[in-house]
């Protein structure tokens, strides 16, 4: 009896927390549906997968628009093709600026990630929509993908043995061998725990607090009529800016992680570069 009571109270508390959590953000069309049809199974299903649904919206948007832009293949681009070329070329320029010409092969990954995160961040500004990146699950997925991608690049560039050596801190001599378990633990925990944790937590915390900011200003707006409207405009501008900055920071950090794990310039002299064919968009000035 006591047991069930306790269970009920925890459930109520959890529900209250969930409720609180929900009311901390502006309503989107799924929460509204949930509000009006709380018993419908379909709506409950939508509600439990709302972040994924909004993410899929953005994924579909990016995929359809960019592929239809890429299919045009006109020499003189206009409209859609022109816009996407601008975006893609800007991203390629940024990434190759950090990674050098060989970074061209990482442009699709980093660029897709950047566009995806940016549009998800901005989605919260559209009425009845929600930023999926304000949920930690979403950002954890991105951070994990980035981590795995970076480590995969490391294995591909150095070979598995060298990569494992690098993880063990390149042990040299007795001291190195003695320290190797420690180095291994430190490196593993940094590469596979600290990096994704910091990436995901930063993005999630920023975007969710942006959403909360928007919500609070909307609340003010409802309480006092026209004066806070200006504040909300200001908040919107801030959110646009910070959403971009967060996506950019994610891109920058991912690029830096890749550049850290890629072989350095002096290594390339005796390790023949395997993919010379993937020449950069920016050929060096002749």
């Amino acid at each position: 009896m006591n047991m069930t009571e306790q269970q009920v109270t925890t459930a109520v508390q959890a529900a209250a927390q969930v409720q609180e959590h929900v009311t901390e953000e502006l309503p989107n069309f799924i929460t509204i549906l949930e509000h009006f049809f709380p018993k419908s199974h379909f709506v409950r299903f939508l509600f439990s997968w709302e972040n994924v649904l909004f993410s899929f919206l953005i994924l579909g948007f990016i995929a359809i628009r960019s592929i239809s832009a890429a299919r045009k293949k006109e020499f003189l681009p206009k409209g859609l093709q022109n816009r996407w070329e601008l975006v893609f070329e800007g991203l390629a320029e940024f990434v190759t600026g950090i990674l050098g010409p060989r970074g061209m092969e990482h442009v699709p990954f980093l660029g897709t990630m950047f566009l995806y995160i940016l549009l998800q961040n901005w989605l919260g500004l559209i009425p009845l929509m929600k930023s999926p990146t304000s949920a930690w699950s979403t950002t954890i997925a991105f951070a994990l993908i980035t981590t795995i991608y970076v480590q995969w690049v490391g294995i591909k560039e150095h070979g598995f043995v060298n990569y494992a050596k690098h993880l063990a801190g390149n042990p040299v001599g007795i001291l190195g061998l003695a320290l190797f378990p420690l180095m291994l633990v430190i490196n593993l925990s940094i590469e596979f725990f600290a990096v994704p944790l910091s990436l995901s937590l930063r993005l999630f915390a920023n975007v969710s607090s942006e959403d909360k900011l928007l919500y609070k200003f909307a609340e003010l707006n409802a309480m006092y009529y026209w004066l806070p409207f200006l504040f909300q405009l200001f908040a919107n501008v801030l959110v646009i800016l910070f959403s971009f900055i967060q996506a950019f920071v994610f891109l920058l950090l991912s690029t830096v992680y890749i550049s850290l794990i890629m072989p350095h310039e002096h290594d390339e002299d005796h390790v023949a570069a395997p993919e010379q064919s993937s020449s950069p968009v920016h050929s060096p000035p002749t």
Binding site: I62, A63, S66, I67, A69, A70, R71, K73, P77, Q81, W84, E85, F88, E89, A92, M104, V107, P108, F109, G111, T112, V281
Partner: peptide, 12 residues
């Protein structure tokens, strides 16, 4: 996207 968007656009 890598196959159908990035590669063609960057190639263009």
């Amino acid at each position: 996207l890598k196959k159908f968007a990035w590669k063609p656009l960057l190639a263009i």
